[in-house]
Nucleic acid binder design. Structure first.
Lengths: 328, 328
DNA sequence: CTGAAAGCGCTTACAG
DNA sequence: CTGAAAGCGCTTACAG
């Protein structure tokens, strides 16, 4: 920087002013140009460590994730966060903790040492968490998870609306006997989607038939078994809302095995919008998408948007959009 | 830090020595303990910006990726790089450029400003690249890609060995009429896997039958068409090596449609090991895995391992392991 | 064994 | 409009 100043024949301060386009100091157009060309000629590059030190702040945002490649979900959250950070001229410090408490602790310490502006704490599937205490030392937002007492800001998908929408698209096609193959796991997704299913039926004046609500392991095998069960009913459903796309995949197997056509004989709607599955089933699966990209992006926007103040506690809920394909 | 020194009754230098476990200065056990407890009590956390500044180096490694969530592949590379970086007490600065030249330029500039130790430049599928010139200003290694003139260090998968292995496992089961459904794309994967296929056949003394080598678009549809074609042959193959798992998925569709059993009537081996596909086909698909995690990990190890010197130019080739399931 | 001091590369009041 | 100077929080010879 001193070299640039010398070459341009100005002081350090002037170089700093023009490089950072500070308007507080009026620098003549001529000097400005001289400085720029000197910087160019010398290949000057500002040292961010020095800048961060003197300013007592960095442009870093920490992102701690409990998974990074086990599902496409985590990747989408990271991508959303990364894009939003980039747009705000911030840089993501990504740590993959594999849900290991010690790794989380280390990661957060490291982030704090780097004077991060804030931390995003994310999980690959929607759930309740008790995040490490260190997280509270800095502005933070939970993404795809939430604190039991809602004492931290969080961004989560709207499972209820998702379940309602899934059921609604089926109702809109005239279906009245709509099954819901839920998951045996206990999770916000399980309870939320069920509530949405019931709300949609109720709003349409359709009485719930207990025979039509099953719970299975949320995998292909579970969907297959559920399909067989449903087909064995005295009056089988005309449409099925599956907890997720993998369950729907198993449901396809069972229906095809029994010679049922989709959507001719039975309409199907899934959840998750896992491209590799939903896009490749035959027929391609209509489903509800989890808004992972949006969750990540919203998370960092909340972190950065608060005019300097930390984001407020409480859950922000994001819509799960319907992705039409050809299974209904 | 001054506060810690005061509380412990020592100088700044001493605090620095004990915090960093420097052995050059012998500090008594007693002072050491006093310093640690003072640091503890004050909740002292070292400021990395200051440390990086004075040391003229950071513990950052830049990772520029052309994709981050479009496929699981990129995620695995990032995870591998992240784990290796972490093991060496380094932090990943991840930039997602979506293959946009300007974004790449910006990302690299930003990384350079942060005094990164080096940069990993990665692509989500194996290919030749002409990386931005700025990359040469700092130690770097290409991951899953390579420079046309091999003037940069690179880590890539061994496509030839992969193709050879895929063919070999089929030969080992006694198959002699082995088809290869290749991709119409021009890529290292296409040429490499074909060479591997031929090498394996030649080594086994099996003459290549031109009818058995097809090229299709590397997707489900392509695999489906290839399956029909192969079945229409006067003497159909008894085994098929598919360019990738999506092609294998289409191949399954065609074979099942024609009532063929896998592997009873025809054995199949895929490539890529895309969990969601390979693990969920019926029967589960035996395939060759692309070593993305390993590529990422090797990349940062090369960057860091060179005793301070930049890694040497040239391609490092990594094995593609066979993943047995139930399709042969 | 421990301390005083210089210096890393910047930014920013404060003078002029 | 521009410059001299202090200071950000550290590390590391160099003395003692």
């Amino acid at each position: 920087m001193q070299d640039v100043a010398d070459l341009a024949g100005v002081s350090l301060a002037t170089v700093s002013f023009v490089i950072n386009a500070k308007t507080s100091a009026k620098v003549s157009e001529a000097t400005r140009a001289r400085v720029w060309s000197a910087a160019q000629e010398l290949g000057y590059r500002t040292n961010r460590a020095a800048k961060n030190l003197v300013q007592g702040a960095s442009t870093f945002i920490g992102l701690v994730a409990d998974a990074i490649a086990s599902t496409p979900f985590a990747g989408q959250i990271i991508r959303g966060a990364q894009d939003a950070a980039w747009q705000n001229r911030h840089i993501l410090l990504v740590a993959n903790t594999e849900a290991n408490g010690e790794a989380e602790q280390d990661a957060i310490t490291m982030m704090l040492e780097h004077q991060v502006t804030g931390i995003i704490y994310s999980t690959w599937y929607h759930r309740e968490v008790t995040p490490p205490a260190a997280l509270r030392e800095v502005p933070c937002v939970l993404v795809n998870c939430y604190a039991a007492d809602d004492s931290l800001p969080a961004v989560v998908p709207d499972e209820v609306q998702g379940g309602r929408t899934a059921t609604q698209v089926l109702l809109d096609r005239g279906h009245r006997r709509i099954a819901f193959v839920n998951s045996t796991e206990s999770a916000p997704a399980t309870t939320g989607r069920l509530r949405g299913y019931r709300a949609a039926l109720a709003a349409a004046g359709v009485a719930e038939d207990p025979d039509l609500v099953l719970t299975v392991r949320p995998e292909q095998e579970g969907g297959y078994e559920a399909g067989l069960l449903l087909l064995g009913l005295p009056t089988p459903p005309t449409a099925v809302f599956c907890y997720n796309d993998r369950v729907a995949m198993g449901m396809y197997d069972a229906l095809h095995e029994r010679g049922m056509r989709i959507p001719g004989d039975i309409a199907i709607v899934g959840f998750d919008n896992q491209e590799v599955i939903a896009g490749h089933l035959r027929p391609p699966l209509s489903t509800i998408a989890l808004p992972h990209y949006e969750l990540g992006a919203r998370g960092v926007r909340m972190l950065l948007g608060g005019d300097g103040s930390a984001p407020a506690p409480g859950r922000t809920i994001v819509d799960c959009p319907y992705i039409p394909r050809h299974s209904l």
